[in-house]
Design a protein around this nucleic acid. Sequence first.
DNA 1: ACCACGATTGACACTCGCCT
DNA 2: AGGCGAGTGTCAATCGTGGT
Length: 312
Amino acid sequence: MSTIDDVDVLAGRLDLNLLRVFMAVMQERSITLAGSRLGLTQSATSAAVNRLRQQLNDQLFVRTRQGMEPTSLAIALATPVGNALGLIRDALEESRGFDARTTAREFRLLMTDVGELMFLPRLTAWVHEHAPGVRLSCRQVPRDQYGAELETGGADLALGMLPLGERDFVQQRLKDETLVCLACAGNPVARKRLTMDAFLSLPHVVIRAPAMGDRFVVKALGERAGRRKIVAEVQHYLSVPMILRDSPFLAVVSTSVAAELAGPNRLAALPLPFKLEPLAIRQFWHKRWNNDPGHRWLRSGIVSLFGRAARR
DNA sequence: ACCACGATTGACACTCGCCT
DNA sequence: AGGCGAGTGTCAATCGTGGT
């Protein structure tokens, strides 16, 4: 149990700016990057980390090949410090009121390249129109790191087909997606209903992106999946329209991705010749953001743009 | 051994609060 | 108002580490 003296000591010595530096280094794993994010030089950031090291009597970050790795104390502090800074920001924002027209806030989003394709064109335009000072900062991290990123404050919100079953997270279903088959508009198969025979006999371009729905196709096809002829496997979507253009190849993508890619690339989106369960697209966040006015503003904007009631 | 990159350290400047 | 010290910033030099 802490005493009055403990509180006095903390109140007298602990500087919130040092905690901001701590969280920035925790998220960037680099003194230099953390400094540039905070508008400080490398040496000022290093000095700030050193002051915190002395105050907490712990190395906090150790230099390794992977960057500045946190010590066990730093890892233990990350979540409560992140929560505390979030509460302070909430309190300040609450007292001032969140004003989308004047805020200069940065929202850090996690999504896959499919997500960027699906969300960013409309979301960026909407943010620019309603909150010209807001910056969206999007990152891709491995699927299993989403929870840690949201928990430590490395990201504010995640979007996509990535359910986080863990405690302390909130998820909101935006809409259901289905998968369709993209083919060159000149492909004879694009002029009639796609049959299972045509689907299995034509060569496929398979996208092996982290959140791609090919695993659902394999599951739905069952033992027939092995009959698919795969001509190419790619990691992301950038090259897919160029590969399909003027080719006999097929690629399975979500309806939203098909809507973005088909028109400009003279491609046709064809219903699949088999049934698939709908795929839920959600937004996820840590529960500490529930009442944050800025966060609520962004979430409701995303719902209005991409929720079930939204119309293009 | 050399090089590149990034963290640390030292010297110095500036600001701010406290005291006289 | 002016002196003083603490805190924190920049700049430049140095150090440590990994890659070639």
